[in-house]
Design a binder for these strands. Structure first.
Lengths: 182, 182
DNA sequence: CAACAGCGTTCAGTATTTACAACACACTGA
DNA sequence: TCAGTGTGTTGTAAATACTGAACGCTGTTG
C-alpha cells in the first residue's frame, strides 16, 4: 500500500480537509495534495510534521500500512482495534484492513463524567449502537434518553445528538456509523 | 531518537559499511553518510530503498525508534526480540532498547542442515553460549565439538569458528558476543 | 443569479535532497 | 616505503520536494 492513499484515508477518517490538516501541521495544502496523489515522496521530516497535525506517530502510520497488506482479515482481536480516542472517551475502530470502509464500527468507553462535548453533533449518515455495560445518556433532537445495559439506538446523524455519562460507572458502547467520515 | 543514529546503529549491527549498504540499496554512499549525520531528512522512498538493503521494513525501523523512547526496558518478551536472521538460521537479539550495546545476546535456532556458512568466521571479541535444545556441531580453530542440550562454550572470536547442525532435530542456542559488531 | 467560502488540483519558483567524484585517513601486504 | 583497498566525509551539479498563488469545482447565502 502506498503512502498517499494511506494518508488520505486517515485524514478523511479524522474528518479533516487538506487545508485544515495543512494548517495544523504547518505545511501548505499543496504539499498534502501532492503527497496523497503520490506525485512526490515526502521527506521524513515533512511526513512527521504532517502526521503531527493528525496527530499520529510515524510508527502508527507505517503499522497501519503493514496491516493492510492482509486485505482479507475478517476477525480482529481486542488488541488489534485502531484507537481513535477523543478526549476522555476511548473509541476503538473495527476493520483496520478496510481503508475505504463504509461503516465506522466502534467500541467506545465513556468514563463517569465523560461526554462527546458541549456542542451537539450533526453530520450526514445514520448511526446505531447498543450499550453493553453501565448507563449512558443520549440526547437526539432535544429528546433525552437513558440507555441501560442491553438498550440500543438508531437515528439519522443529521439530527443534533450528544452522548454523556453522568452516572458513576463506566459505560461501554458498541456503535456503528455510516458513512465513516465522522 | 533521530533517524540518523538509528540507521547507523542498525547498519553496524548488521556489520555493513556505508558503501556496502549503499550498493545493496541502490543509492550512493554519500547519501547514507549524510542521512546518518542528520544533515538531510531523507524522503520516504529513499529511506525505503536504504532499508531494503538491510533488509528492514519501514514499520520495523520506526518501531525500533519508538521502543527506545523507553530506554530503561529490562525485561523482554519472546515476541519483543529483534529478528536479525541470516539464511536458514533464525537469530533474535535481546535488548533492543540499548542501541549502543556492548553485548549481542541472541536466541538462535538452527534447523537440521543449517550452518553459519562454508567459510569459517573470524572477528574480534569473545563469545559464549549454551545449547538449550537439540544437538549442534561447533568447530573452533580446527577442533570439532558436539554440543548437546545443556552444554555451553566460550572462545575468542578471532579463532576461526563455525556452527553446523548435521543432526535431524532443530538446535536452539542462547549466545552472547562482545563487542556487538559481528 | 451573484457573491462567497470551502474543497482539491496545478504551475512556476525556491529550497532541499541525491548522485557523482573527489578527498583524507587507516590498514594491509609486497 | 609504497601501492592498493578499505573506511567515512565533503564539494558541485542534477534531480526532487516544497511553497505560494493561481485555477476550477461544489454547495451555501443573500
Amino acid at each position: 500500500m502506498d503512502v498517499g492513499v494511506r494518508l488520505q484515508s486517515i485524514r478523511k477518517l479524522k474528518g479533516l480537509s487538506q487545508r485544515e490538516l495543512a494548517k495544523r501541521a504547518g505545511v501548505t495544502n499543496s504539499t498534502i495534495s501532492m503527497i496523497e496523489k503520490n506525485s512526490v515522496s515526502p521527506s521524513i521530516s515533512s511526513l512527521k510534521k504532517v502526521l503531527a497535525g493528525i496527530p499520529m506517530s510515524l510508527v502508527e502510520f507505517f503499522s497501519l500500512e503493514l496491516e493492510q497488506d492482509n486485505p482479507t482479515q475478517v476477525v480482529y482481536k481486542a488488541s488489534e482495534l485502531i484507537d481513535i480516542s477523543d478526549g476522555a472517551v476511548t473509541m476503538k475502530l473495527v476493520g483496520k484492513a478496510h481503508p475505504s470502509r463504509a461503516i465506522a464500527f466502534l467500541s467506545e468507553t465513556y468514563p463517569p463524567g465523560a461526554d462527546t462535548g458541549d456542542e451537539m453533533l450533526t453530520h450526514e449518515g445514520e448511526e446505531a449502537g447498543m450499550l453493553v455495560d453501565g448507563k449512558l445518556e443520549l440526547t437526539v433532537a432535544g429528546e433525552v434518553y437513558v440507555l441501560e445495559s442491553g438498550d440500543s439506538y438508531y437515528f439519522e446523524s443529521a439530527k443534533p445528538h450528544r452522548f454523556r455519562n453522568p452516572f458513576d460507572v463506566p459505560a461501554k458502547l458498541i456503535s456503528a456509523t455510516t458513512p465513516a467520515n465522522f
